[in-house]
Write a protein that binds this DNA or RNA. Structure first.
Length: 486
RNA sequence: GAUCCCAUCGUCUAGCCUGGUCUAGGACACCGGGUUUUCAUCCCGGCAACACGGGUUCAAAUCCCGUUGGGAUCACCA
């Protein structure tokens, strides 16, 4: 067989969805592991839902994930153009070919008429099939209809035979002839429908392995029939089980991020997302779970794609990210952290590499970059720009007879006399602990709450070193003053 | 509603094709314990599934049938 050629053909209507990302990934893997070609085509034939900015968004997120195409939009190739909106004349030519061969015909119903027919069928508990007219309307009928202001579409005349799809994942699936009907291939506006454009492009671009979501499986008969009518070769098909939410419903935005970009913005590493979505509906067949892109390429096999829908478990994704971050080298983390900061509003200066590296080090054990921001962001705002969490204040400072405040006042005196090196701070605090025979927590927590407003921050020495003496004292004073007011 | 597809721990899944090695394995989550100046991390231990009912067979998670449950499709959206 020829070298394998796969494609990802998104419709630009918004951000890249994790489901789309998985389809892209599997196509990429399929091509790469066999030394084949992976191409990217934009299917922008839906003018109503079209969003031009989505093209760039999809491309950007694909690249962020590390999925590179060998041919297609932006990089070109021998089979362009790679946007369907630029291939309209091609589709027209193929539609006409069908029309001339009597394999397609014109139809003139309005949406309302079609709707009424469907309603009627429903009322009679009958399945609706478009009633093919006899004789078939010809071009002059179409001209006449157009002159009368009626919509004109082109429908494919199905041959009326059962169609069996040979799917690499689901096996042979047969769609009976009486389940099919004469579907539309050219819309009122003369643009092609998905089925026509997709089939023509795949054939013309040499795509010989079609891997896409399972929602297309029960429609693939249209593609088989269209290909047959054109004399195109059959590609291999592999339909992927769907990705659902934890309730088993279609993955939707309401229960969290579903877009690749959202995970990027939330502080996840791209290779983690790739690893995780690769395991949705596929596995290497052994106990390995952590796989790099090259390991995925090496071990990928369509035969190991499962048939059951998968649920998208965000907690497992988080665990993957936590582990990956712990193993990643600093420069890689630095790049990821900067990307994260550039996408989010943050007081942390994103251009100070040594500071960023320092933050990465003192936050060891973080789960996503967002953890660093929530923990350290407050250290970079002005001293009066953060709120004191009432619960933290109560628990750490006000509890008892204001023991925490007393401790803080004492510490303020000592701290202001400290020469502010990590060693000095450490012995200062340890001395206080020893002197009063109390635990570290009793000393560190009041300071932490005073300088950050919360009970959560990096280790106390790290926190104080980043803040510096002046800001520390200023914040403690603000905290003490707040007590007086209360 | 019609058609098609699917079904192992709460979740991702291994095992199923080529029945016995499965008192069903791994990971996440959860629970319990430990480490830790907070959070997070980390360490140890534990809980937990073959949807149900019939067959076939010496033997079934594995093969067959049915039931139930879930999903997809039935657009001038892709």
């Amino acid at each position: 067989m020829d070298t394998i050629k796969t494609r990802f053909a998104p419709s630009p209507t918004g951000w890249l969805h994790v489901g789309g990302a998985r389809t892209a990934l599997f196509n990429y893997l399929l091509a790469k592991q066999a030394g084949g070609v992976f191409l990217l085509r934009i299917e922008d034939t839906d003018r109503a839902r079209h969003d031009e900015s989505a093209v760039a968004k999809i491309i950007e997120d694909l690249r962020w994930l590390g999925i590179e195409w060998d041919e297609g939009v932006e990089i070109g190739g021998d089979n362009g153009p790679y946007r369907q909106s630029e291939r309209l004349d091609i589709y027209r030519k193929y539609t006409n070919q069908l029309l001339e061969a009597g394999r397609a015909y014109f139809a003139f119903e309005t949406a309302e008429e079609l709707d009424a027919m469907r309603q009627a069928a429903r009322a009679e508990k009958r399945n609706f099939r478009y009633p093919r007219p006899d004789p078939l309307p010809r071009r002059n009928d179409a001209d006449k209809a157009r002159a009368e202001g009626r919509p004109v579409v082109v429908r494919f005349k199905i041959p009326g035979r059962d169609v069996t799809i040979h799917d690499e994942v689901f096996g042979d699936v047969t769609v009976a002839a009486d389940e099919q009907d004469d579907f539309i291939i050219a819309k009122t506006d003369d643009w092609p429908t998905y089925h026509l454009a997709n089939v023509v492009d795949d054939a013309l671009m040499g795509v010989n392995f079609v891997c896409r979501g399972q929602e297309f499986l029960s429609q693939t008969w249209r593609h088989v029939l269209l290909r047959e009518a054109f004399g195109f070769d059959e590609p291999k098909y592999a339909h992927l089980p769907l990705i659902m939410d934890m309730q088993g419903r279609k993955l939707s935005k309401r229960d969290g991020a579903v877009e690749v970009h959202a995970f990027r913005k939330a502080g996840y590493l791209p290779e983690v997302l790739v690893n995780f979505i690769a395991l949705l509906g596929w596995n290497p067949g052994d106990d390995r779970e952590r796989l790099t892109m090259s390991e995925l390429i090496e071990s990928f096999s369509p035969g190991r794609i499962g048939k059951a829908n998968a649920k998208f478990d965000r907690r497992k994704l988080l665990a993957f990210n936590t582990d990956a971050v712990a193993d990643a080298d600093e420069n890689h983390l630095l790049a990821g952290f900067k990307d994260y900061l550039s996408l989010n509003e943050t007081p942390i200066p994103g251009d100070d590499d040594s500071l960023l590296l320092h933050l990465l080090r003192i936050n060891k054990g973080f789960r996503t970059f967002a953890d660093i921001l929530t923990k350290c962001g407050v250290l970079f705002v002005t001293d009066d720009a953060f709120e004191y969490d009432p619960k933290a204040v109560k628990k750490v400072l006000a509890k008892g007879d204001g023991d925490g405040y007393a401790m803080l006042a004492d510490l303020r005196t000592k701290l202001s006399a400290c020469d502010w090196t990590e060693d000095a701070l450490q012995s200062l605090i340890e001395d206080v602990c020893a002197e009063k025979s109390i635990g570290m927590g009793k000393v560190a927590q009041p300071i932490r709450v005073a300088v950050t407003g919360s009970t959560v921050s990096p280790a106390i020495y790290d926190t104080l070193m980043i803040l510096g003496k002046e800001k520390t004292i200023a914040r403690i004073d603000r905290c003490l003053a707040m007590r007086e007011k209360a």
